[in-house]
Design a protein around this nucleic acid. Structure first.
Lengths: 156, 156
DNA sequence: ACGCATTAAATCGCACACAATTAAATTGTG
DNA sequence: CACAATTTAATTGTGTGCGATTTAATGCGT
């Protein structure tokens, strides 16, 4: 028996069986769901994630932020410049190691945290699952994610 | 007790508790995992999804493809033009309804299907979970996705 | 039949993602 | 200490996603 729906020999190439499509499409839906709430703060979804990382700890390097979000400088550098233009963060070279750029928060960036606190609650409700289910799903996804990343790194 | 990790009052704003980040980051990892295999076929991941939809049924409208993938014409029109330039699909106005554009497959587009059949198997292994676990995870994600989309539509 | 709302694609602008490359600073090794 | 390897950001180019608008075709109510 094929554990996915249907028994046709090509069922592995059917969209409805694709875990990857479920992940891809849910991610797009997440961005769209956040968009109106984040627009009120002047943030995009990736910018919001960067702010979350900085609200946890200020003065991190681009590399540190990139490790936490799995994003490289090609994505982060222009994004951080936009956050700087918006007056939410600061960028300065680390005098101890001139290769690094330290990202800090402005007063406005810190203040935005309070306005953001209502968002996870609202979005959590939009997911339509309990906190326990959300936690389990999150754990399963992070396992899959780490497996995928390990496979990518191994190939290099 | 807070069912997410930690009891700090701000734990809802911690990255490690974010289901949405798990989804976002896993989706990025999926794209990166597919990239080397799809590059051998000359496809990007979204282009591959469009091809999967067309391999299931030829001569669909842009709207039909967009409904299945939750993508609009702003994303699909340029993507489809690239697939046409690559010689994999055909685009022609529906003579019965001139608003619609019918997307078909070329011989090369159909032939690419055979070369793509090994990909879901390889990626499935990279996920590092059983087919049963993948099926369950897929179902949970699609439920979350549909809930999010329903919330977005309701807001309009 | 007329006109108006609806629908389908295309277009435009902005912001990611990421591969690949470049430039500069630091580390490590002989 | 020299100098090659490594590390960190920035840059460049391609391809999405999506909001917003535009254009053209169709449907629908009177």
């Amino acid at each position: 028996m094929n554990p996915t729906s249907g028994n046709a020999p090509d069922s592995l190439l059917k969209l409805e069986n694709f875990l990857c499509f479920a992940i891809y499409s849910t991610a797009n839906a997440v961005t769209r769901a956040y968009q109106p709430r984040l627009a009120a703060l002047g943030l995009t979804y990736p910018q919001y994630l960067v702010m979350v990382v900085l609200w946890e700890r200020e003065n991190q390097t681009v590399k540190s932020i990139g490790d936490k979000l799995s994003l490289d400088s090609g994505t982060l550098t222009p994004l951080l410049k936009r956050l700087e233009s918006a007056g939410l963060i600061t960028r300065r070279r680390d005098t101890a190691d001139e290769r690094q750029v330290l990202i800090g928060l402005t007063d406005e960036g810190r203040a935005t945290r309070k306005r953001a606190e209502a968002i996870p609650i609202a979005i959590g409700q939009a997911f339509g699952c309990t906190l326990g289910e959300a936690k389990d799903l999150r754990a399963e996804l992070m396992t899959v994610r780490d497996n995928l990343i390990a496979g990518i790194d191994k190939a290099k």
